[in-house]
Amino acid sequence: MDVNLRVQRYDPAGDRKPYYEEYLLTGQPEGVTVLDALIEVRENVDETLGMRCSCRSSICGSCAMRINGQATLACKTRVSSVAQPDGSVTVEPMGNMPVLKDLVVDFEIFWNKINDIGPWLKTEGPVPEREYIVDNEKMLNLIGTVGCIMCGACVSDCTVLAADPDFLGPAALAKAYRFVGDPRDAHREERLADYVKDGGIWDCTHCYYCVEVCPKGVAPMEWILELRREAEAAGHTNHNGVRHSKVFAESVKEAGWLDEAKLAMESMGSLKEKLSLVPVGLRSLLHGKMPPTGPLHYKRPGADHVKRIFEELEAKE
């Protein structure tokens, strides 16, 4: 098959800004991957193409890049599955990390975030002579996070990191759960106290981008949500995120549907934050669309059944 790669190029020595270069490869095997094609370019067409790659089996995490705008592993992506109707495949470096050259980005940002979560097992007390005895289910559960190969795809496409580079980000937070959820770790409490701070678990918007792009099915966002549950259960409740979640549930429980205004107001922990809602509230009033709130927030038909369902299932929490 023919492969038409459109590759973003940038050499800091000579280029003022990135540009695209097209490579047409003919007679490639049907199953050719984007990485195979890039290697073919680098070895036989244009030796100056800069990229990282190693294992070719989606286990080393080296070759993450954006293919048609979305971060993934080039070694795992078959050209035939991503070629556009005109046959082209666009290849760009990952986002949220500065480009060093062509498809090579500065990964230090990624490693620093991993380091920030205290990424090693912290046990306490006498070390057993043999292994720690732990439930296999709990170990199996952790495999979901240990499957992360640190390729950076989730960090590349995280929509929060794009706005706030201080966010710990999906990979590091998924890694954080790996220790919080490990029965052998004795520092669960202080970890959670750390992860609820600004830049931590409550800054995730659950936009599913990391879930979508993770080439290993780690679904970092799901672990962030797991951390939120753990943090709340551990008593870290003085946070707008927890208030938001609780008020949301209460209002649906009582009336069958959401009291938007109450949710916004009661999520805010400080008077200053509550006041910040005043302008938007006033604008709503002026436009005749203040949602029914407080006593005006009527019950939906069948709201008593909704409440019963809440009571049944909250008892199981």
Partner: peptide
């Protein structure tokens, strides 16, 4: 979704 958690972001 994070308007009440991290308004700046």
């Amino acid at each position: 979704p994070i308007l009440t958690m991290n308004r700046d972001n």
